[in-house]
Design a protein around this nucleic acid. Structure first.
Lengths: 191, 191
DNA sequence: TTTTTTGGAATACGGTCGTATTCTAAAAGC
DNA sequence: GCTTTTAGAATACGACCGTATTCCAAAAAA
């Protein structure tokens, strides 16, 4: 058998380059050619790992979802829920270059998903996982009656803040104030 | 002088068709040609009203912003702020075909604005207007100390819910529950 | 060393894109 | 009625797109 290569690793590299490209230049600058160039490959090489552009996009969307779940798993669930939620959201918002890159890609995919069933399914799965985790955090701290509703509200709040930060970085601090205010309201300190 | 036409009205027609197209097929299906076809015009005719695609997009974004402001102006500000905010948000969320069309276009523009300074400026202006109006509503009802922060939180909440509804219409009712829960928390009934 | 299979580059195809240019027809002013 | 200006269609151009195909070099198995 001929020379072989860790195909999954190559796919991840390409997917990561795609996410980077989305964050820097926007989803509509993503093409097989631009992604290939971003990874120092030829377009033909990319085609060996993804048969279609769609497949490449879906893979990148799953990659982005995995990152969210990984960050979520890294939060200390022993913390009071208000602090745990705050910590998670602050790793999600575009507060520095890396976060911004990920948030940009994430939101671009979300909008794209409105007309793309496969991306929509991926997004829904991530949302479901996040919602379950947040609900569990809240439940375990005694916010029992409507923890799921609070979790959905927190997710929406986080996405909405991230979205606005993308095109209004000047309002960064102002929006962080709003975040604190909303968390205060949604998660009474009683815990 | 030759036959003349209400140019601004023509521009609005084209802009409206563009928004419809965004909501039905997504922003990356928008081209001079597809917009022209959607209005029953030739591409050349569209070029008479917008010198570039960019100019057409910016015009449509402003059109969408005007609609938001018009709906906002239509809310009875004499209502208790919780009810006024609820009313405004419910006219913003994609709860039926028309609202969905507008929300889709609005969010698509928002994400696009992350890499498009002109669209970003338009979005920021709309946000600023909405924020000021909401802050005034809250202030006038005695939620004085941090009304602006609450307004920002409400805007983020609304955008976040709308975004998720785009690709997860199944979760519609669940998200409306979250909306009520968040409003309860953010705007104490004392008002 | 030869064979076989893979990674990767190169090329080609039809299609769509944004935009500039050119043409036709109609309407307002003289 | 003729001229002038505009609305609108038609066409053309170069660029990029997704994808299929072809070719070549390299490495593992024989």
């Amino acid at each position: 058998m001929p020379r072989t290569v860790d195909r999954e690793e190559q796919r991840r590299q390409i997917g990561a380059a795609l996410l980077q490209l989305v964050s820097e230049r926007g989803l509509d600058e993503v093409s097989v050619r631009t992604v290939a160039a971003a990874t120092g490959r030829s377009p033909g090489a990319v085609q060996k790992y993804f048969r279609t552009k769609d497949e490449m996009l879906a893979f990148a969307a799953e990659l982005a979802g995995e990152r969210v779940e990984r960050r979520m798993a890294g939060v200390d669930t022993a913390l009071p829920p208000r602090r745990a939620l705050r910590e998670l959201i602050l790793t999600t918002l575009p507060v520095d270059a890396d976060r911004r890159a990920e948030a940009t890609a994430q939101l671009a995919f979300a909008v794209h998903a409105a007309h793309h069933p496969r991306l929509a399914a991926i997004r829904r799965q991530v949302d479901r996982d996040v919602r379950e985790a947040l609900t569990a955090w809240l439940d375990s701290a005694g916010h029992g009656t409507d923890a799921a509703a609070v979790a959905d509200a927190v997710i929406a709040l986080s996405d909405g803040l991230a979205l606005r930060m993308l095109y209004a970085p000047q309002e960064h601090e102002q929006l962080l104030v709003a975040l604190e205010r909303a968390l205060d309201a949604l998660i009474p300190a009683s815990g």
